[in-house]
């Protein structure tokens, strides 16, 4: 599998897009830090960018790479390599190269600014962890969509819709349902609802880590009580892991029965 991973990874590293993505984070990081001169504000701004952007890039790269590397996949399938190894290797290749762009692209500006000498290091690491998790989740989801749709245009459309759903529509639906049922106690409902969407989960995790949950009002206190504790953090990370594991299992299962 290491070999497949190596070749997918080096294939992606050759493409300009990885570097454009890296460059974007580098610029964003430097501009935010050196114009803002405030680490925690910088992290909050970055959070808003990351929770929306990493899923989007993961989704687009996932489908694009899968459809573009169909020849490579067919070539590999005729070789004495297990199917699950081929798909897992390619999946890890995309996810790792995107995650590296994120970590290096944001890591360098923050290192230059002196993140290690400040108290914000834990928050910054939390930001990178959730960004990486989101990348792994959305690449897996989008490859699933590509595996189920041999029509490129359809696959691309569904993938974008999927991103839009988690990034925008889901929140809108939750908000709407809260307005409709505002006479009922909704705290636990809000907690569970945000748990079921990886983007919301990451956002809340970082917000709470930054200790600005007061902005969230009464529900925020509840969230703080749940997520603020170490077990809350553990559950959230566990949930993010499930969000990676389930699509990956689905992907491997689907790849086993697909014709090429």
């Amino acid at each position: 599998m290491i070999k497949i991973l190596k070749y997918s990874f080096s294939d992606l590293m050759r493409s300009r897009w990885s570097f454009i993505y890296l460059g974007f984070y580098l610029i964003l990081g430097f501009v935010l830090l050196f114009l803002n001169n405030d680490l925690s504000k910088g992290i909050i701004t970055l959070m808003n960018v990351i929770v929306v952007l990493t899923p989007m890039i993961g989704t687009i790269f996932g489908v694009m790479y899968f459809y573009n590397s169909r020849e490579f996949t067919e070539l590999l399938l005729a070789q004495p390599v297990k199917r699950s190894v081929i798909f897992l290797g390619q999946y890890l290749g995309i996810s790792l190269s995107l995650s590296l762009s994120l970590i290096i692209g944001l890591g360098l500006p923050f290192l230059a600014y002196g993140i290690f000498r400040s108290g914000e290091i834990a928050n910054f690491i939390m930001l990178l962890i959730s960004g990486t998790c989101l990348t792994f989740i959305f690449v897996a989801l989008s490859i699933n969509i590509a595996l189920f749709n041999s029509n490129k245009i359809k696959g691309f459309g569904y993938a974008i819709l999927m991103w839009l759903f988690f990034a925008v529509i889901y929140d809108a639906l939750i908000l709407l349902s809260m307005i409709v049922f505002e006479d009922y106690p909704l705290d636990n409902y809000a907690l569970v609802a945000s748990f079921l969407n990886p983007i919301d989960l990451s956002r809340i995790l970082i917000l709470l880590k930054l200790d600005i949950s007061a902005l969230l009002g009464y529900t925020g206190a509840l969230f703080q009580r749940f997520f603020g504790t170490s077990s809350g953090l553990l559950y959230s990370l566990l949930m993010l892991t499930c969000w990676v594991a389930i699509p990956v299992m689905l992907l491997l299962n689907r790849s086993r029965s697909k014709d090429f």
């Binding site: 067919e74 399938l77 005729a78 199917r83 086993r256 029965s257 697909k258 014709d259 090429f260």
Partner: peptide
């Protein structure tokens, strides 16, 4: 392709 395991 069936022989090669590419088609199930």
């Amino acid at each position: 392709k069936i022989l090669l395991g590419m088609v199930i």
